[in-house]
């Protein structure tokens, strides 16, 4: 028996293409998938929601958008 997984993705089309079984997609740039640096509140929200979706997603390949947004200042 395998181990259930959930992926936190910045680029959801890439995750879809690679056949990830369960995914969540906050609005973040690649490199800050789990949220803004030094923003533990956002990071914790993303981790908690990702783990909840690990349990809730019942369709292989489903990607659930998450309501967190971080725009990196480049």
């Amino acid at each position: 028996m395998g181990i259930p997984t959930i992926i936190v993705a910045a680029l959801s089309p890439v995750v879809r293409q690679n056949g990830a079984p369960r995914a969540v997609a906050p609005l973040v740039p690649m490199g800050a998938n789990a949220g803004e640096p030094n923003n533990p509140e956002m990071q914790k929200g993303i981790v908690v929601d990702a783990l909840k979706q690990l349990v809730e997603i019942d369709t292989p390949g489903k990607i659930v958008p998450l309501p967190y947004e971080y725009i990196a200042k480049v």
Partner: peptide, 29 residues
């Protein structure tokens, strides 16, 4: 392959180990 600026400031934004530790302490996991 990606801009390391954010993760160099705070590794938790790609590797949220501190958040996971908090969730274990709280009994969420």
């Amino acid at each position: 392959g990606y801009d390391n600026a954010d993760v160099n400031k705070d590794i938790n934004c790609m590797f949220p180990i501190d958040r996971l530790r908090e969730l274990a302490e709280e009994g969420f996991i």
